[in-house]
Design a protein around this nucleic acid. Structure first.
Lengths: 200, 200
DNA sequence: ACCTGAACACCGTTCAAGT
DNA sequence: ACCTGAACACCGTTCAAGT
C-alpha cells in the first residue's frame, strides 16, 4: 500500500503499474493478487488511506467553525500533495467520503445547523471541498508540468476572447492570474458557511 | 468525435479504445492520428463538446438567479448522462471550464455581486457544480451497475458504524437513502447563492 | 494528403508449477 | 498458504508502404 502511494506520487496515475509495483517490492507479478483484488483496488485503498489520515488528524480544534476550515484545508492539501486522489474520488464513491460527510455533518451540527438540514448542508460542503480541491490540484499539476502558468492562463483567456458567442471583459486574464489557490479555496468554504447560517 | 462520445456513453471510460473507435468508423487503426493527437485528446475534446453545448443551450432565462440554477442543472444533467465527463474534468482543466467560469461570473454580476468578488464567487460555484455533479454521477453509476442502491448505502453506514473512532448517530443510513439527488444538488446551489448574498 | 495494418512496446490478469 | 514468471489477451502509438 505504502509502495503504491509512493509510486502514484512520484510517477502520476499512469505510473502505478503492476510491474513497477512488484519490481519495487522485488516479488513476482502475480504476488499482489494474493493480497488485493486488482489494480483498481489498489487505487481505491490508497485514496481511502490518504483521506482517512486527514480526517483522523484534523480533530484538534475546539471551535466548530475553525475545525471545519481546518478539515477542509486538510483535504485540500492532501489532494494537492496527491493529485491522483482528486481524480479517483470523482470516479468512484469511497468509504472515506462517507466518513468525511459524517465528520462535516457533526461539526455543522455543533455549529447550530438543525438536524434535518445536516445531510443537505453536509453533502453540499463535501462536494465543494472535493470539487475545488481536484480543480486546483489539476491546475497546479499542469502548471508544474513545465508549462508556464501565467502564459497558459493568458492563452486560455485569449482563446476564449476569440469566442464570439460569449465575449470576455478585458481584464479577465489578469483576474485569473492574480490569486492564491489556498486563499480562494478557503473563501469558498466561508461562502458556504455564510449561506448555511443565512438559510438554515 | 460523435462516435467517441457514443462509445464512452455506451461502454464507459474504458470502452473508448483506438481499436473500437476505428472499427466503428471502419478505418485503419492509425487513421485517427491524422486528425487528433492521441486518445487523451479525444477524451478532452469530447468533454469540451458536452460542456460547451450545455453552456450555449442555457442562455434563455431572464432572471439571473433562475439562469444560474438552470445552468448548474444543465451541467448536472450532462454529467449524469455522460459520467466520464465528471472524471475527466477532475483530472484536467479544460477550455470549457473557463467558459463556464466566465458565464457564471457574468450571471453573478447581474445578480449584484461586486466586480472584485466575481472571480472568487464564480470559481467557488463552478467547483461546487463540478464536484457535486461528479459525486452524484459516480454514485448513480454505481447504483445502476446492478448493485442495490439502498443495500449499498446501508452497508456503507454499517461499515462506518463499526468505526469506533467516529461513532454514527442511529439514523444516518436512513438519511443517506431518502433524498433526491437533483433536489439536493439544487439545495446546494441555493446555499451558495445565499452565502454570496449574505457576505459579498 | 490521407489511409492501411503490421509491428512495437507496453499493459492487467491468470495459472500451472514450485516452496 | 503464498510466491513465481511465463503466457494470454489486450492496449496506444508508430511508420513504411500504399492510394
Amino acid at each position: 500500500m505504502q509502495a503504491s502511494i509512493e509510486l502514484l506520487d512520484a510517477e502520476g496515475e499512469d505510473g502505478l503499474t503492476v510491474r513497477a509495483l512488484t519490481a519495487h517490492l522485488s516479488t513476482g507479478r502475480g504476488a499482489i493478487y494474493h493480497h488485493v483484488a486488482g489494480k483498481d483496488d489498489l487505487l481505491a485503498a490508497g485514496t481511502d488511506a490518504v483521506i482517512a489520515e486527514v480526517i483522523t488528524a484534523a480533530g484538534g480544534d475546539q471551535d466548530p467553525s475553525q475545525a471545519l476550515r481546518a478539515l477542509a484545508l486538510g483535504i485540500f492539501d492532501a489532494i494537492d500533495a496527491h493529485p491522483w486522489v482528486g481524480a479517483q474520488l470523482a470516479r468512484q464513491p469511497q468509504p472515506a467520503i462517507f466518513r468525511l460527510w459524517t465528520g462535516i455533518g457533526t461539526l455543522l451540527g455543533d455549529l447550530g445547523v438543525a438536524e434535518p438540514d445536516l445531510p443537505t448542508a453536509g453533502s453540499a460542503l463535501v462536494s465543494y471541498v472535493l470539487g475545488a480541491s481536484a480543480q486546483y490540484a489539476a491546475g497546479a499539476r499542469r502548471a508544474a508540468d513545465g508549462e508556464d502558468r501565467e502564459a497558459h492562463l493568458q492563452q486560455l483567456a485569449e482563446q476564449w476572447a476569440g469566442d464570439e458567442a460569449n465575449p470576455a471583459p478585458g481584464d479577465t486574464a489578469a483576474l485569473l492570474v492574480e490569486h492564491d489557490d489556498r486563499d480562494q479555496f478557503l473563501a469558498g468554504v466561508d461562502i458556504f458557511l455564510a449561506g448555511i447560517a443565512a438559510q438554515m
